[in-house]
Design a protein around this nucleic acid. Structure first.
Length: 923
RNA sequence: GCGUCUAUAGCUCAGUUGGUUAGAGCGCUACCUUGACAUGGUAGAGGUCCCCUGUUCGAAUCAGGGUAGACGCACCA
């Protein structure tokens, strides 16, 4: 094996072999276990969030596959209507064209072209990450079978009266020229103004002052409202206002909605351009005057001088005109929430249009119950509150989009605008008896992307066909996703899957945190703090990284700052850490917290961990290759250390599986890291040396230790495999032939996961080695603090040796001599006097290292004083507790027992330490 | 306005139903090229567990109230 681990040399080849061998497919045997990949944007590329979540999904998939489950990770991509259309449109714009220049058909062809060209990016990046979904089942939301499912669902919901078409106020994105759902609108507080305007009464008897943040909407005002009990305005209710600028007459109405305390207590009402006003308009049968065009210019409903003006230009103009005519009272600065489209950032306008809606109330009910009953479980649990809050207040879902890229709505209109819904035009014609003489045209709109995503759990399994997969893999075992799409996606999947299959879509919903940069900022292009998972795997030169972060920016003026920051943070670019290190970093960061600050230091640490595994394996192979490892039998004697490492392995395995069951990947990672590095490498490998490098060891002893070495490593590789697939595969291929494993299988990934075996968890052995460790550490400690070279052999004297100590000493003598470099160990008799020494305590046994010529008196005194302080501190606490009668009478016996033992222990230690101090002082 | 979350070492984070000497990684200090590994080893330093009050024999952990921050939903023109 190479001296250092070089991931890039093995990963790609390894993956290819797995995929070629068809190892990612469900086995068809065992309990079904399945995970749905949240379909990424087909033309997107992998970001840290994907890397994070997919690593988790892959770890679960690999784990369950090894456990023998019938494991399917269903993969696929999403057409991402708005996002994809925007990308292609932007490319067109760069050529000086718009989609309208091309026309619908040609434009859609262009998008398909773009999909062909860049559609493989994210799936090939997933392969770099080592993910193991069943690629043969990969689907795309616009594939025929998924599109059929979409149509089927639309038609059925329409038949059930749960999809309807209606003219309503919607959130309109004037850049995209489409309606968007409530969820796609972000409200942010921004600085704005409040304009106070004077509205004269038509009869000349006075005026009312109204205030607005959007003065241009006054052109569409159809009333002024006051509170019905507002004494100031009783006399004007029912009178008419002569609307400035337009001269239109509008009524003064009374409505509870008006807050008399706010402003003047008079509100201008614009039903066609404000959601609250719209409701009031309906209550009072007010006319609804739409004054805007689709791109938010003023339309022909307004006085001529404003027609065709952009809404914000018109705002200035109108304010100016009102001022000039004396209708402007004042302008105040005002903070307000501005609704913006989540894709475009454009200010959203409430806009009166015909759209398709899903009536969600009846769908929401079973979806809420599924979570309330515990059938579906959120992890962490508190997310169900977020879910309930939204579901209990859910509004009908506007599903039509005035886009071209997506599933076209299966509805047709005749020339009288009668609407017919059906799977095809033929079906519509035959169902409604419309012959060829009736011209039909299909609805121009497409469906919200999330409409098709909502069907993911069953559409990917072949629905509406009744397939075996539908039976087996619905519900799936766990959904791994971010909290940002609980409403967009998770809730809607639950509703749709319940409605169309009667089943829940998944049992567990594991909500991951959001990956942020090292200081907690969201990673974004404009902040220039984005990390590409592939760059962490392969490494990237500084210049290339800077170029990447500063190219294609929406705000090029930020480029310089970003370049500077990047050069400062990564003066040497980013090293190639390899996939396994990155994956281990991801799992180790997956705690319950909502934000995860990505720390490069962790990746480096886990790269070192990979290297550690690599080198430990080199050691094992060096000592087992061309040796008898007992693979084919032969007498074996296991050393204390051999039995101990198996016990430790079992402990680790148990903790690991518990953590994984709780979705605590961080704890699972920590457990295996601690075992591998601190137990296996730091102790066990060292403890094999006294056996293997000792001519006095018997063949059976050597065979036993070699057998343990190779097989514990083999087990550890399988334990680590779900998190670190590549390095474990690479090493396993060399280790397996020496181990007890006899298999035809070509890969570790289809080996069984290690089995828990309580019989190996030998408490006595665990305690014995703890004693050995304490012994060795005690001596190392003396060396460290006394400045005695680690190489200098020492003679140790032992005092106060119990029978147990004595047994342990016999069993572990070889370990002790070697690991703490002892020339001799002498047990002192009870009455024997010891020479002045440095001391370490192992329980009650004293290790004495005679000081003659070695040890500095003051240093030893200082060391002892420190030890005494520590013990004393503890002792006083314990004494205090036990002296407290309330403690003794209230605390559980076990706790009291523990404290008593501690007290006794502490006292004995104190005694020994004090004796030592006396001895040293008397020198 | 309603709801959720966070605060522990210089940094990034763990800490199970209340009982630990409050831990890990990175960083820091000293020593060590010992035949797996300097991407390493050994030993160490480093904490007012955000603040206050309470419950309790006992609180990082539970309750109440603050402070600072993050987020979601709904919003008064």
């Amino acid at each position: 094996m190479e001296k250092t681990f070089e991931p890039q040399s093995i990963e790609k080849q390894c993956y290819q072999q797995w995929e070629d061998a068809g190892l990612f497919k469900a086995s068809g045997e065992g309990q079904p276990y399945s995970i749905l990949l949240p379909p990424p944007n087909v033309t997107g590329s992998l970001h840290m969030g994907h890397g994070f979540q997919q690593t988790i999904m892959d770890a679960l998939t690999r784990y369950h596959r090894m456990k023998g489950d019938d494991t399917l990770w269903q993969v696929g991509t999403d057409h991402a209507g708005i996002a994809t259309q925007m990308v292609v449109e932007r490319k067109l714009n760069a050529e000086g064209k718009t989609r309208h220049d091309l026309g619908r058909e040609t434009f859609i062809d262009k998008i398909w072209e773009w999909k062909e060209q860049s559609g493989g990016t994210i799936t090939s990046q997933m392969r770099r990450l080592g993910t193991s979904p069943d690629w043969d089942r990969e689907v795309f939301t616009m594939d025929d079978n998924l599109s059929n499912a979409v149509t089927e669902v639309f038609v059925k919901l329409h038949e059930d009266g749960l999809i309807y078409r209606g003219k309503r106020l919607v959130n309109w994105d004037p850049v995209l020229h489409t309606a968007v759902s409530d969820l796609e609108v972000l409200n942010e507080e921004e600085d704005g103004h409040m304009w106070h305007m004077r509205y004269p009464l038509a009869d000349g008897s006075g005026e009312l002052v109204v205030a607005t943040t959007r003065p241009e909407t006054m052109l569409g005002d159809t009333a002024v409202a006051v509170h019905p009990e507002d004494e100031r305005y009783q006399h004007v209710i029912g009178k008419e206002i002569k609307l400035p600028v337009t001269g239109r007459l509008i009524p003064v109405i009374a409505d509870d909605y008006v807050d008399p305390e706010f402003g003047t207590g008079c509100v201008k009402i614009t039903p066609a351009h404000d959601f609250n006003d719209y409701e009031m308009g309906k209550r009072h049968n007010l006319p609804m005057i739409n004054v805007l065009t689709a791109d938010a210019r003023l339309n022909d409903e307004v006085p001529e001088q404003y027609r065709g003006m952009d809404r914000f230009d018109a705002r200035k103009q109108i304010v100016g005109d009102l001022d000039a005519s004396g209708h402007l009272v004042k302008v105040d600065k005002h903070k307000l929430n501005v609704p913006r489209g989540d894709r475009t950032g454009a200010v959203i306008e409430p806009y009166l249009t015909d759209q398709w809606y899903v009536a969600v109330e009846s769908l929401a009910k079973p979806a809420i119950e599924a979570v309330e009953s515990g059938e579906i479980r959120f992890i962490p649990e508190n997310w169900n509150k977020t879910y309930y809050q939204w579901m209990h207040n859910i509004q009908d879902w506007c599903i039509s989009r005035q886009l071209w890229w997506g599933h076209r709505i299966p509805a047709w209109y005749d020339n009288d605008n009668n609407v017919y819904v059906g799977r095809t035009e033929e079906e519509v014609r035959s169902k409604h008896g419309l012959d060829a003489s009736v011209a039909l045209r299909q609805d121009e709109d497409v469906l919200d992307t999330w409409f098709s995503s909502a069907l993911w759990p069953f559409a990917t399994m072949g629905w509406p066909e009744q397939t075996p997969e539908l039976d087996k893999f619905v519900p799936s075992s766990v959904l791994v996703t971010g909290f940002d799409i609980i409403f967009f996606w998770v809730a809607r999947m639950i509703m749709m899957t319940k409605k169309f299959t009667g089943k829940i879509p998944f049992k567990d919903i594991y909500i991951t945190g959001l990956i942020r940069d090292e200081s907690g900022d969201k990673m974004s292009k404009s902040k220039g703090n984005v990390l590409d998972p592939i760059d962490l795997i392969d490494g990237i030169e500084l210049d290339a990284l800077v170029a990447k972060r500063t190219s294609g920016m929406m705000q090029p003026q930020l480029a310089e700052k970003i370049a500077k920051r990047t050069r400062k943070q990564f003066p040497d670019g980013i090293q190639a850490y390899g996939t396994d290190a990155l994956r281990f970093t991801f799992v180790s960061m997956a705690s319950t917290s909502r934000d995860i600050n990505f720390d490069m230091g962790r990746v480096e640490g886990y790269r070192n961990f990979c290297n550690k595994i690599w080198n430990a394996s080199r050691f094992v192979l060096m000592n087992t290759e061309e040796h008898d490892t007992g693979r084919d039998g032969g007498e074996m004697t296991l050393s204390l250390a051999d039995r101990w490492i198996w016990a430790k392995f079992q402990q680790t395995l148990k903790d690991f599986e518990k953590a994984l069951g709780d979705y605590r990947f961080d704890l699972a990672a920590q457990t295996v890291y601690e075992f591998t590095w601190n137990q296996l490498c730091d102790w066990y490998l060292e403890l094999t040396k006294p056996v293997l490098n000792n001519d006095a060891s018997s063949d059976a002893e050597k065979r036993g230790t070699r057998h343990t070495l190779i097989n514990v490593l083999e087990h550890t590789l399988r334990l680590l495999h779900p998190f670190m697939p590549f390095i474990t595969e690479e090493i396993w291929q060399r280790v397996m032939p020496l181990s007890a494993v006899k298999t035809d299988a070509s890969s570790i990934m289809v080996q069984p996961f290690p089995q828990q075996d309580a019989a190996l968890l030998d408490e006595k052995v665990l305690n014995d080695i703890e004693w050995v460790k304490k012994f060795i550490v005690g001596i190392r400690n003396i060396r460290g603090e006394m400045d005695i070279s680690p190489n200098k052999p020492l003679n140790a004297l032992l005092k106060n040796v119990s029978d147990e100590d004595s047994h342990r000493l016999d069993a572990a003598k070889g370990f002790l001599d070697k690991l703490s470099k002892l020339e001799s160990v002498t047990v002192l008799q009870a009455d024997e006097k010891a020479p002045p020494s440095a001391t370490a305590l192992v329980g009650e046994m004293e290790i004495l290292i005679p000081m003659a010529g070695l040890i500095d008196k003051d240093a030893e005194l200082a060391r002892l004083t420190k030890a005494i302080d520590k013990v004393q501190k503890d002792l006083s606490r314990t004494e205090g507790k036990l002296a407290n009668e309330k403690f003794v009478s209230n605390a559980p016996d076990a706790v009291i027992e523990k404290e008593r033992a501690k007290l006794e222990d502490g006292r004995k230690q104190m005694e020994k330490l004090n004796e030592q101090v006396e001895t040293i002082r008397s020198l």
